[in-house]
Nucleic acid binder design. Sequence first.
DNA 1: TTTCACATTTTAGCAAATCTAAAATGTAAC
DNA 2: GTTACATTTTAGATTTGCTAAAATGTGAAA
Lengths: 305, 305
Amino acid sequence: MGLPPLKALQAFEAVARLGSVSDAAAELFVTPGAISQQIKKLESSLGIRLVERNGRGVELTSWGAAYHLDIVGPFAALRQAHAVLHRKRAGAGLVVSCLATVASRWLGPQLFDWQVLNPASKIRLIGAESEPRLFEDGVDFRLSYGSKSQSFDHYAPLFTDCVVPACAPGLIAGKAIAAPEDIFACPLIGIEWEGSHKPPPSWDEWARSVGVSVGSVSTELAFSLSSTALDAAVNGRGFVLAQIAMIREDLASGRLIVPIDRRLQLGESYFLAWDRAALEKPFGAEFRDWVLAMSRAQQRKSAAL
Amino acid sequence: MGLPPLKALQAFEAVARLGSVSDAAAELFVTPGAISQQIKKLESSLGIRLVERNGRGVELTSWGAAYHLDIVGPFAALRQAHAVLHRKRAGAGLVVSCLATVASRWLGPQLFDWQVLNPASKIRLIGAESEPRLFEDGVDFRLSYGSKSQSFDHYAPLFTDCVVPACAPGLIAGKAIAAPEDIFACPLIGIEWEGSHKPPPSWDEWARSVGVSVGSVSTELAFSLSSTALDAAVNGRGFVLAQIAMIREDLASGRLIVPIDRRLQLGESYFLAWDRAALEKPFGAEFRDWVLAMSRAQQRKSAAL
DNA sequence: TTTCACATTTTAGCAAATCTAAAATGTAAC
DNA sequence: GTTACATTTTAGATTTGCTAAAATGTGAAA
């Protein structure tokens, strides 16, 4: 005894308000036949005739008119509430989750360019090592690495990065770094990747790739976060096997240099995943396209030699 | 971009109001699983999380709480409108349509008894020769004659009537009416039935049935409505071949008499049809049962000898 | 009147939404 | 730990809702 069939009620509301079955059908994106059936269903549910044919069109019975008067308000209120919620959600800006290193060293710096291009947009950047559930955690975009892209409904591969040895200019001031061997004479900083990724190239592998035979490379310092390892390198603590994408700014500003550009490609790629609803939000689609464009540019710089 | 799925919205409204999936399920007469799915559907349609699991139960997210605040009112208003309509319809009383003669001569007089038994009930009696569409014309019950009962969804046969010769006492005052022949010496009133029924027995047939051979029975007066024919008989204009059921009152009060009780059965029966919703209305089922009871009593009086 | 154009209704068949039942999951209390 | 409770998930069955096309009915034009 609670409510009549709501879909039928909605059809009746539209017919009563617009005064025409065809118009109601157009508003609800269905055929007139569907509306006609819903009206009949509602009438039979209430046991009361609400609408009657009148010549070419339809008109309300006295009961239909009275009933409509009572339900237009509530329906308008529901539409209003829906619109309010929709605008609220849209106004909340884009929520972007990415690996901490990517946030601080690749996406973060470039976001200033984005803001110049799209001053009206609002983006919240979240660093997270584990993959979030997009919708459930209120995340619109996720930028991450590896094969976990598969677990998302919508995603695109970005770029495949390479590592190169990099150091602060001060570290090798006065020294001549002409051959790979010279690098192994300097302090080396190691990075221990966590998680289930395919591990990135290590100093051992790099040595092998450039034809240097060292019994065992000693890395005096090792960091679990590549970001802090890079910071350490910037501070002149040694050479780091850095991802090219992650030292963009450092190379541009001269804080880091690459004396010998011998590259090793990472085993997997970065990817961008997004929630279905994200593209509907203001700047949602633009943001994705912008990231993809940045990624193509990065791919050119990161390509293996 | 008008409204979210209304069934899902209804489920959410119930969950939010009752604070429990199970309670909402009970209110809407479905399983908790159905509610759970509807909530998920609404959330995915809005692109926003509205409800979260909290330990043993659920609770609203801040967005869910805000949204609920906006929709409880409209939903309550819809329920209110529904209840108002329901009460209006119920309060309108029972609408009974029947053949004009039945209205004025069988059901009408007995309705006073019904009113004594059910003083709180309200009945509107409508005389109509053609069969109404029950629901479409706002008719709850139809009492009529013949095979058209088939065209109704719900109906019950009532009684099969007989005709007898009747006249006003004054017509034969001082005369001795001992044999059927004596009746044919008096003025006869004929009835011409309209419509598609099997015609009722005529004076010719009655004469044959009682063994009177008359070349051709002359009916000086003929009426198309049996009701007016009976009135004419009451006014002493002649004999009428009257249906026993239709002269109940006249016999009881002595306005008409049956000097020779030789009966002829009608070819078809009376029936009562009703709308599905009629039995739900106040006194609806009681009225049907009362008519059926009256009909059984009538059957006993109308039985062929 | 007949014909035409237009709006709604009806019909049958198909597609999608919705439900149930049962298993799975997750919590809190014992 | 074990249990009891509430919700969620899953697969499958049922119901509902929709479309397309034909039918119906109306008013206006020829």
